[in-house]
Protein backbone atom coordinates (compact mmCIF):
# COMPACT_ATOMS: atom_id res chain seq x y z
CA UNK A 1 0.00 0.00 0.00
CA UNK A 2 1.08 3.56 -0.72
CA UNK A 3 0.59 6.34 1.83
CA UNK A 4 -0.90 9.63 0.64
CA UNK A 5 -2.10 12.78 2.38
CA UNK A 6 -4.95 14.98 1.16
CA UNK A 7 -5.06 18.50 2.61
CA UNK A 8 -8.40 20.28 2.55
CA UNK A 9 -8.56 24.02 1.92
CA UNK A 10 -9.29 24.55 5.63
CA UNK A 11 -6.01 22.81 6.46
CA UNK A 12 -7.46 19.51 7.60
CA UNK A 13 -5.19 16.57 6.76
CA UNK A 14 -6.45 13.16 5.65
CA UNK A 15 -3.92 10.32 5.62
CA UNK A 16 -4.93 7.40 3.46
CA UNK A 17 -3.45 4.25 1.96
CA UNK A 18 -3.85 3.49 -1.71
CA UNK A 19 -3.20 0.58 -4.02
CA UNK A 20 -0.78 0.85 -6.90
CA UNK A 21 -2.57 1.26 -10.24
CA UNK A 22 -5.73 2.93 -8.93
CA UNK A 23 -6.23 6.64 -9.58
CA UNK A 24 -6.03 9.52 -7.14
CA UNK A 25 -9.71 10.50 -7.62
CA UNK A 26 -10.84 6.99 -6.74
CA UNK A 27 -8.67 7.05 -3.62
CA UNK A 28 -10.31 10.31 -2.55
CA UNK A 29 -13.83 9.02 -3.25
CA UNK A 30 -13.20 5.68 -1.51
CA UNK A 31 -12.00 7.53 1.56
CA UNK A 32 -14.83 10.11 1.46
CA UNK A 33 -12.40 13.03 1.24
CA UNK A 34 -14.43 16.27 1.12
CA UNK A 35 -13.94 18.66 -1.79
CA UNK A 36 -13.67 16.18 -4.67
CA UNK A 37 -16.92 16.03 -6.65
CA UNK A 38 -15.85 13.75 -9.53
CA UNK A 39 -19.08 14.37 -11.47
CA UNK A 40 -18.03 12.43 -14.57
CA UNK A 41 -16.75 9.44 -12.64
CA UNK A 42 -13.21 9.54 -13.98
CA UNK A 43 -13.44 10.32 -17.70
CA UNK A 44 -11.35 13.50 -17.68
CA UNK A 45 -14.54 15.23 -18.74
CA UNK A 46 -15.80 17.52 -15.96
CA UNK A 47 -12.83 19.02 -14.11
CA UNK A 48 -14.40 18.49 -10.66
CA UNK A 49 -11.57 16.41 -9.19
CA UNK A 50 -9.07 19.26 -9.46
CA UNK A 51 -6.14 18.95 -7.02
CA UNK A 52 -2.75 20.58 -6.58
CA UNK A 53 0.22 18.30 -6.17
CA UNK A 54 2.95 19.44 -3.77
CA UNK A 55 5.96 20.88 -5.56
CA UNK A 56 8.42 18.13 -4.63
CA UNK A 57 6.12 15.42 -6.04
CA UNK A 58 5.38 17.10 -9.34
CA UNK A 59 8.01 15.25 -11.36
CA UNK A 60 6.76 11.90 -9.99
CA UNK A 61 3.26 12.73 -11.19
CA UNK A 62 4.28 14.13 -14.55
CA UNK A 63 2.61 16.68 -16.79
CA UNK A 64 -1.09 16.59 -17.71
CA UNK A 65 -2.07 15.23 -21.13
CA UNK A 66 -3.41 17.61 -23.76
CA UNK A 67 -7.04 16.79 -23.00
CA UNK A 68 -6.48 17.08 -19.27
CA UNK A 69 -4.80 20.46 -19.75
CA UNK A 70 -7.84 21.68 -21.70
CA UNK A 71 -10.15 20.64 -18.85
CA UNK A 72 -7.89 22.29 -16.25
CA UNK A 73 -8.02 25.56 -18.15
CA UNK A 74 -11.74 25.67 -17.50
CA UNK A 75 -11.22 26.44 -13.84
CA UNK A 76 -9.90 29.95 -13.14
CA UNK A 77 -8.07 28.57 -10.11
CA UNK A 78 -5.65 26.26 -11.91
CA UNK A 79 -1.89 26.74 -11.68
CA UNK A 80 1.35 24.87 -12.45
CA UNK A 81 0.65 22.32 -9.70
CA UNK A 82 -2.85 21.50 -10.93
CA UNK A 83 -3.90 18.01 -12.02
CA UNK A 84 -7.16 16.16 -12.38
CA UNK A 85 -7.02 13.46 -9.74
CA UNK A 86 -8.74 10.94 -12.02
CA UNK A 87 -5.79 11.17 -14.42
CA UNK A 88 -3.09 10.45 -11.83
CA UNK A 89 -2.27 6.74 -11.55
CA UNK A 90 -0.87 5.75 -8.16
CA UNK A 91 2.70 4.45 -8.32
CA UNK A 92 5.03 3.22 -5.53
CA UNK A 93 7.30 6.27 -5.90
CA UNK A 94 4.37 8.47 -4.85
CA UNK A 95 4.48 7.12 -1.31
CA UNK A 96 4.26 10.06 1.09
CA UNK A 97 2.83 12.44 -1.51
CA UNK A 98 0.84 15.44 -0.32
CA UNK A 99 -2.08 16.67 -2.40
CA UNK A 100 -3.93 19.94 -1.81
CA UNK A 101 -7.67 20.17 -2.48
CA UNK A 102 -8.80 23.58 -3.77
CA UNK A 103 -11.49 25.61 -2.03
CA UNK A 104 -13.93 25.14 -4.90
CA UNK A 105 -14.51 22.76 -7.77
CA UNK A 106 -15.93 24.37 -10.91
Amino acid sequence: MIDLTFVEHNGEHHRVSAKQGTNLMQVAVDNAIPGIDADCGGSCACGTCHVRVSQQWLDKVGAPSESEALMLEMTPEHDARSRLACQVTIQPEMSGMIVDIPEFQM
Partner: peptide
Amino acid sequence: AKARHHLSFGFGIHRCMGNR
Protein backbone atom coordinates in the same frame (compact mmCIF):
# COMPACT_ATOMS: atom_id res chain seq x y z
CA ALA B 1 -26.13 7.75 -5.00
CA LYS B 2 -23.88 9.73 -7.38
CA ALA B 3 -26.60 12.30 -8.10
CA ARG B 4 -24.03 14.56 -9.75
CA HIS B 5 -23.30 11.94 -12.40
CA HIS B 6 -25.69 13.25 -15.05
CA LEU B 7 -25.43 14.71 -18.55
CA SER B 8 -27.33 17.97 -18.16
CA PHE B 9 -24.18 20.11 -18.05
CA GLY B 10 -22.48 18.17 -20.82
CA PHE B 11 -18.97 16.73 -20.49
CA GLY B 12 -15.70 17.83 -22.03
CA ILE B 13 -14.46 21.26 -23.04
CA HIS B 14 -17.95 22.69 -23.64
CA ARG B 15 -19.25 21.68 -20.22
CA CYS B 16 -21.65 24.22 -18.77
CA MET B 17 -19.79 27.22 -17.42
CA GLY B 18 -22.58 28.44 -15.11
CA ASN B 19 -23.39 25.09 -13.52
CA ARG B 20 -22.47 26.28 -10.04
